[in-house]
């Protein structure tokens, strides 16, 4: 978009939305929208609070553990499905179902099985992320050009070389895309899990704020989460773009 001869990148349109938020908040038009400036003040305050630090550490830990296993299991299953036809036929259906299933409905079961604590959150994160990583890895592996495969064989590549020097790299763009999407889903999973468990970490903070009508604090906490989600997903996006040049170049 060009304003008065100056190119303004689209990201700056977010400032307009922020301004609009501030105006709506000042007018007291919709009471769930407190002025953005007030939210930001609370945001800075929350960032300094001890209970936020504890909540953030618990959430981050649950998130990292769940995500770690999701990547490990997802990439493994994706490769298995891409390379072994029987595995694809046995697992394909389930992976597809769970990739688009309303996993939020499983959280009550997880709470029963794993209690009202961290384990439930970890499992929720894992379940939200693993299927899309599996699907994307599978897509990447099954779209590897057959001639790349033949090339490696014709030069006598061992099984190990085949996987570590050809197949893994050839599927890497899709694997990264899967991890990025898995990441986005995992953030949603960690939030949904905590909202439903509601006695630990951020979930407890959210429910305290909403029960006491502390809207400014509530929005501040939500904004922190949003920024965190966007930050990491654009970080993975950056890595993804570094390998993108060959994703398009493959046949």
């Amino acid at each position: 978009m060009v304003f008065f001869g100056v190119r303004v990148p689209a990201v700056f349109s977010l400032l307009i939305w922020c301004a609009l938020w501030e105006v709506v908040g000042r007018m007291d038009a919709v009471f769930i929208f407190p002025p953005l400036s007030a939210v930001l003040v609370k945001l800075v305050m929350i960032l300094g609070q001890n209970n936020f630090h504890e909540a953030a550490i618990i959430s981050l830990k649950a998130f990292s553990i769940g995500m770690f296993w999701a990547v490990l299991v997802g990439v493994f299953l994706g490769f298995l499905m891409g390379r072994v036809d029987a595995a694809n036929k046995l697992l394909g259906m389930w992976v597809n179902i769970f990739a688009s299933a309303p996993l939020s409905s499983l959280v009550p079961i997880l709470m029963l099985l794993f209690g009202f604590g961290e384990t439930t959150i970890i499992v929720t994160v894992f379940l939200f992320a693993v299927w899309i990583i599996t699907l994307d890895t599978y897509a990447g592996v099954s779209h590897i050009s057959p001639s790349l495969n033949e090339m490696a064989r014709s030069f006598g590549a061992s099984k190990w070389d085949m996987y570590t020097k050809v197949l893994f790299w050839a599927a890497l763009p899709e694997i990264l895309a899967g991890i990025r999407m898995g990441f986005i889903r995992a953030v949603k999973g960690v939030v949904i899990g905590q909202l439903l468990v509601s006695v630990v970490a951020l979930g407890a903070m959210f429910s305290r704020y909403s029960r006491s009508f502390l809207l400014e604090e509530f929005w501040a906490l939500a904004l922190i989460l949003f920024v965190f989600a966007l930050g990491i997903s654009s970080m993975i996006g950056w890595v993804e773009r570094r390998v993108e040049y060959y994703a398009g170049a493959r046949m």
Binding site: L148, M151, A152, S154, K165, V166, R250
Partner: peptide
């Protein structure tokens, strides 16, 4: 073998690609 669609590793340099057979 020389492939119709070249079958080069897109993530590797010319040097690495030419050395692939030797590496194997």
């Amino acid at each position: 073998f020389v492939f119709q669609d070249f079958a080069l590793l897109p993530w590797a340099t010319v040097l690495t690609n030419v050395g692939f057979g030797l590496e194997m």
